[in-house]
Amino acid sequence: MINTYIEMVPALLNGAKITIEVLVLSLIFTYIIAFIAGLGKLSKFRAIRVVCTIYIEIFRGTSLLVQLFWIYFVLPFFGIEFSALTAGVIAMSLCYGAYASEVVRGAILSIPKGQTEAAIALNMTPFQRMMKIIIPQAFKIMLPGFGNLSIELMKGTSLVSLITLGDLTYQSLTLRNTNVAHTTEIFVALLVIYFIIALPLIVLARWLERRASLGRV
C-alpha cells in the first residue's frame, strides 16, 4: 500500500506544479481584471459601463467549463490559438474576474458618500479621490470576498484537465488508466493534495473574515 503511494509521487508532483502555476497566474489576472471591470462599471462614461456590464453578465451567466472550451476549441477558428495553459489561465481569470469585479464594486459603493465629498472639498482630483481615499478603505472590505473567491478558483483549476493540460487531476486520471486496481489510493491522494493546497487559502480567508468583522456589531 505504501509502495503504491510512493510510485505515484513523481506524477502527482508534476501535476501539482501545473495546478499551482495555473492557480497563481489566474489569481493575479483575476484580481487585475476585477479592478478594471469593477471600476469600469462605476465609470461616469456610459460606454465603459455598458461594456463592463456585458462582460460581467456573459462570464457570470455561462459556465466556466463552457468558457474554457470556447476559448480552447473555438478561438482557433478565428486564427487565435492558445496553449492549454494559456487558455486555462485566460478562461479562469475572465470567469472569476467577473465574479470578483462585483466584490470590488460592492465594496466601493459601501464607502460612505461623505468620504467622496470630503475629498472633493480638499480639492482632490477624481483619480486621487479613488486612489487615496476610496480604494484604501474599500480594499479591506473586499478582502474576505477575495479570500472565498480564491478558494473557488483553486477548485476551478481542476477543469483544465478537461482540455488536456497535465494538472493534478489529469495526472491522476492517467495514473488510473495504467493502475486501475489502485483507483481508490489515487483518488484519495488526489483529494488530500487538493485539500492541502486549499488549506492556506482557507486559513487566510477565515482570518480575513474575522478581521473584517472586528469592530462591527
Binding site: 483553486m154 483507483t183 487538493y194 486549499a198
Partner: peptide, 22 residues
C-alpha cells in the same frame, strides 16, 4: 463539510464514479 467544500467537485465526481464501484 470543510473537506468537501475545499476540494474540486470534478474530482469528487471522479471519486464517486470510479472508486465506489470497487
Amino acid at each position: 463539510s470543510e473537506f468537501i467544500r475545499a476540494t474540486p467537485p470534478l474530482v469528487q465526481l471522479f471519486f464517486v464514479f470510479y472508486v465506489l464501484p470497487f
